[in-house]
């Protein structure tokens, strides 16, 4: 049996996924990227391999993706997150026409074809508005874990609109709302709206077509997903572990390269 690995070195998290030659996902590992992306990648791969009981030598091909893809010494090839998230989402949900990936520093809207190949995409620039980072800063302001932010926003009956998209301005806006004793859940709901509106605006330039799949860590935030679904008018595919979709796509592309030959 031969195996393939995909490694997604993101700005916040690093994932490794192992698949076999039938494209079955055998296991994965998620690590914090931290200050040393190569170490995180090495650790993620080591853990994933040991979980599934496969040795490094049995790995036929490794594809690295994510912003840290450039420096991964054991990768046979580098492919951008755009192509990897596309392939990963297509594999899990074959009817996917549009992928929304929101990670720590990037948000992307990707339109894909029936083979999981990218047709068009759009991506934020340097600014953190509409990214996981924005939500983390706001979670910090409220002193709640970012994992709980989504649930809190779902509890709100009403919503307090946040007028700034810029992280720095939005933060001071939130601080003054807190000082005015406005309900926390409603402010949080407004913050979620700000993220969704931003990404929704980006999405208009490529258009949203077919079924929508969300990937990246922010897809774990049920508040964000609910607002996207509200905008769309229908439900979104969310895998039980959306954070690994990029790494899964990388593994699938690693396998695809060999099979083409």
């Amino acid at each position: 049996m031969t195996y393939f690995a995909g490694i997604d070195v993101g700005s916040l998290s690093t994932e490794a996924v192992i698949i076999d030659e039938d494209a079955t996902m055998l296991g994965y590992s998620i690590q914090e990227t931290g200050a040393d992306p190569v170490r995180a990648a090495t650790e993620a791969l080591r853990e994933a391999l040991s979980l599934v009981g496969v040795s490094r030598e049995q790995l036929h091909h490794v594809v690295a993706t994510g912003y840290g893809r450039i420096n991964i010494p054991f990768a046979d090839r580098k492919i951008t997150e755009i192509s990897c998230h596309a392939m990963g989402a297509h594999h899990l949900f074959p009817d996917t026409g549009t992928v929304i990936d929101i990670g720590g520093q990037d948000s992307k809207v990707i339109r894909i074809n029936a083979e999981g190949r990218v047709l068009d995409f759009t991506m934020n620039d340097k600014c953190a508005a509409g990214t996981g980072r924005f939500l983390e800063v706001m979670a910090g302001t409220f002193g709640v874990p970012v994992q709980e932010l989504g649930e809190l926003s779902l509890k709100a009956q009403k919503e307090i609109p946040i007028s700034s998209v810029c992280t720095v301005f939005a933060e001071s806006e939130v601080i003054s709302l807190i000082a005015q004793n406005r309900p926390r859940e409603q402010i949080i709901r407004g913050l979620h709206r700000a993220v969704v509106s931003r990404v929704w605006g980006m999405a208009q330039s490529v258009g949203i077509e077919g079924a929508v799949t969300m990937s990246g860590g922010v897809a774990k935030n049920r508040g964000i997903v609910a607002l996207f679904e509200e905008n769309l008018g229908h439900s979104i595919h969310i895998h039980s572990e959306p954070q690994i979709i990029g790494a899964l796509g990388a593994a699938l592309l690693a396998r695809g390269e060999i099979h083409q030959k």
Binding site: Y67, T80, E81, I82, D106, R117, V118, F121, D125, K126
Partner: peptide, 18 residues
Amino acid sequence: LSGQMKTRLEAFIEIVRV
């Protein structure tokens, strides 16, 4: 080129290649 711009450019080339 920012990291994002590099990714955009590389992803575009991947599209062109496919």
